[in-house]
Design a protein around this nucleic acid. Structure first.
Lengths: 154, 154
DNA sequence: ACACTTTACCTCACTGAGTGAGCTATTCTC
DNA sequence: GAGAATAGCTCACTCAGTGAGGTAAAGTGT
């Protein structure tokens, strides 16, 4: 079964197990997002957009269509379509900027936030409980490790 | 900024940091897959299919179009299209089953494996080095935590 | 042995998310 | 104030994925 690619190195094999777990986490996260999208009658991209917008709000960043397009790695036209869909569903409001007549500010509606919490709330709680099962020093270890992993992922 | 949703609870806030890191890892993993897809002239779905097929090979599971469709969460027709694309690109071979005349077995070509290693090899090495920076007991801690996280993700 | 159902995979016609070309309106720069 | 740059948009198009439905092989009951 394709010998030579993974030499028999116990240490490397152990580390590989952990890496496979990371991949599994990424996979299941995506699956959860997809499931939410389906139940909410949205598309995966729309959900990713909502998440980005909420992150922006949390971080105090002004979310414009151009900013969102960069976040999603899509063209501005596709992002316009996403915003139209979210606007039609009542999940996003488009507020014209006072300082820049060209620009628009995107605001996630309260109903969308509530919808998100209804689905992701329990999941988030489970994750927080799982994390709080670790003592502070262990949490720091995991945090440092995950930070190093994000760096390694580029 | 939407008070009441995240009450000021230091312990919860610390755990939330870790959860956000998990999300960041998932995001960057997807971005890496997307980048590979672009450089290889494939689609995200095609790459996901290849990864599933390689996992099947590693696990000793016989990969059929129907099995792949289930893995990808897509219809059999869409999966047929994926296989055609991968076949045309020389990344997959379709071998008819001897025991069941209806069924086909999917085999990833050596060139596809080499292509994957060329891109993911360095990334994987970085992840393994990051993981091996932990001592065995710390690796076990991370492993157990990530296992609990996958469970929490459903 | 023979009809009946199920399974595995496929083709065809269609939908719609995302792209490229190119537009308008507003702001910045000299 | 003219020219360049920026923000966002519409239009025409492409193509990944779906629904309907078909074919061939395997299983099932009589």
């Amino acid at each position: 079964m394709r010998e030579g690619v993974t030499p028999a190195d116990p240490e490397r094999a152990a580390a590989l197990d952990v890496v496979h777990l990371l991949r599994e986490v990424a996979l299941r996260y995506d699956r959860a997002v997809g499931e939410f999208a389906r139940t909410a009658g949205l598309h995966g991209t729309d959900v990713r957009a909502l998440v980005s917008l909420l992150d922006a709000e949390r971080a105090g960043v002004a979310a414009t269509p151009t900013w969102l397009a960069q976040q999603l790695g899509m063209t501005s036209q596709a992002t316009t379509a996403v915003i139209h869909r979210l606007e039609a569903a009542g999940h996003v409001e488009r507020l014209r900027s006072r300082t820049d007549g060209r620009s628009a500010r995107l605001q996630v509606s309260d109903t969308a936030v509530a919808l998100g919490w209804q689905f992701f709330g329990p999941l988030l709680d489970r994750l927080i409980i799982t994390t709080q099962a670790l003592d502070p020093s262990q949490q720091t270890l995991v945090k440092d490790y995950l930070t190093a992993v994000t760096d390694a992922l580029g």
